[in-house]
């Protein structure tokens, strides 16, 4: 059987909110390592990889590797029924086609369980090669979300350019053009407010803002976001999940033919 218990249930609610608009159906992989998922959006332009390590849960039991196919909109509907302070338990018995979500209020005076049907999902796993990125930007996640939102009112694509000056986000459209430059700023009171740019090589890449905006749904999960770029490679936009793991979004660039 498979069972996990997460006292900070709101994390799981936030994780679902971060992926449900990008991916419709996905296989969750349960193993001794943890609870993970890899899925592409329907047009195969973006990929999301989630890992919640087993050590991060208050209780984690996985007798054998298990794949649970779930409709993420339905899963999100169920997790929305959990209170923000609730403890969430996910359970699945071997050989059944359902998963149970159990929600306990902090004072244990309300206990709910929701059973959801699992689905068979034909999904392909992609091998993500280890890469040395030419530029890595760490910045406040709310700032990145703000930039993506602001630029989408100007154009459909963002050009992200890292030079020794800093990182420039540019968009252009019918009404005009916008450039937002963020410089390295490590001298802040709180580390979560820092912007750190590690650059081996200057790199410029173009991306669809629609996907970037979808990735920023993960903003409530982490104060900082890490954006890793190399020429002609998908960008990686990573949000840590409080000491448990991460959500990584990979987005294929737009390339001039």
């Amino acid at each position: 059987m498979f069972e996990l218990r997460l006292v900070q249930g709101s994390l799981l609610k936030k994780v679902l909110e971060s992926i449900k608009d990008l991916v419709n159906d996905a296989n969750f992989d349960c193993s001794s390592t943890g609870f993970s998922l890899q899925a592409m959006d329907s047009s195969h332009v973006a990929l999301v990889a989630l890992l919640l390590r087993s050590e991060g849960f208050e209780h984690y039991r996985c007798d054998r590797n298990l794949t649970m196919g779930m409709n993420l909109a339905n899963m999100a509907k169920m997790l929305k029924c959990a209170g923000n302070d609730d403890i969430i338990t996910i359970k699945a018995d071997d050989g059944t086609d359902t998963v149970t979500f159990m929600f306990e209020s902090p004072s244990q005076d309300k206990i709910s369980d929701f059973e959801m049907k699992l689905m068979d999902i034909d999904s392909e796993h992609l091998g993500i090669p280890e890469a040395e990125y030419e530029a890595i930007i760490r910045m406040p996640s709310a700032e990145f979300a703000r930039i993506c939102r602001d630029l989408s009112s100007i154009g459909d694509t963002v050009v992200i350019s890292v030079t020794k000056e800093g990182v420039r986000f540019s968009a252009r459209g019918d009404i005009g053009a916008a450039n937002i430059v963020c410089r390295q700023n490590a001298t802040v009171d709180k580390p979560e407010d820092a912007t750190i740019i590690e650059m081996q090589e200057p790199v410029t890449l173009t991306f669809a803002l629609r996907y970037m905006n979808s990735f920023t749904k993960a903003t409530p999960l982490a104060e900082q976001v890490t954006i890793s770029m190399s020429s002609d490679l998908p960008v990686v936009v990573e949000y840590k999940v409080a000491g448990m793991g991460y959500i990584r979004y990979y987005l294929a660039p737009k390339i001039e033919e």
């Binding site: 195969h44 332009v45 490679l233 998908p234 294929a252």
Partner: peptide, 14 residues
């Protein structure tokens, strides 16, 4: 303009 590529162009299927 630039052409949108798919992620499967960069990452191989296992």
């Amino acid at each position: 303009g630039p052409k949108q590529h798919t992620i499967t162009k960069f990452f191989q299927k296992l």
